[in-house]
Design a protein around this nucleic acid. Sequence first.
DNA 1: GCATTAACCACAG
DNA 2: CTGTGGTTAATGC
Length: 225
Amino acid sequence: MKDCTNCQFNLYAAKTFNKEQLSSMEDNCSGKTFKKGELIFKEGITCSRVSLLKEGLVKIHMVGVGGREQILKLVKAPNYIGIPNTVGDKTYHYSATAIEETQVCFIGLDNFKELLHLSKDFAYNIIADFCKNEILHFRNCIHKTQKQSAGLLADALLNFANNIYESHSFTLPLSRQEMADSFGTSRENVSRMLSEFQRDGIIKVDKKEISIVNIKRLELISGLG
DNA sequence: GCATTAACCACAG
DNA sequence: CTGTGGTTAATGC
């Protein structure tokens, strides 16, 4: 029934697996589709598996000070989500929610470990991914503490345009509140800034439809902070 | 002082 | 859930 041969994770990280190893993977993974807004895993519960994001877009979020929600990052398929929760106390330290129709494949922890032992390339790819992520997080950390909200909003819009949708026009998958939760401002501020960007001819906004008119200006705002 | 930035509140679609 | 307007507090010329 299941066939992991053409799973993008084989191409992405584990293309060295042989037939037997693949069939072990096939026996031990299970796929599930999540609709926009559906929770994939929740902060606080026990973690016993790794999630492979095969299709879609997910927000990684965590409850912060005073119950305030913080969106840490968006993850686009194909990617792993939740591996850091599989070590130590094996508890999810953050939640993942689908913000677009999303397909996830779960693989049991023991099986995952076995695969790590089986393939150096597989293991190395995961480490490489983590390294990239940590550096990204350092950069993000600096931005969030040193930039003011207009710069952060510009960053967010550029991220959608350049990395997530690879287009100057896109539909925001997040509400204004969620945008605010991404970089620690108020939803009012996000509304206002989007209006201002539009007024200044930098973007065009129609509800959640965004198109970037003047990307140079946006980059300038992002750079100025 | 005066300007800027942003949070909080209230109210209208 | 959004967009606006008023108000207030903090910070920096």
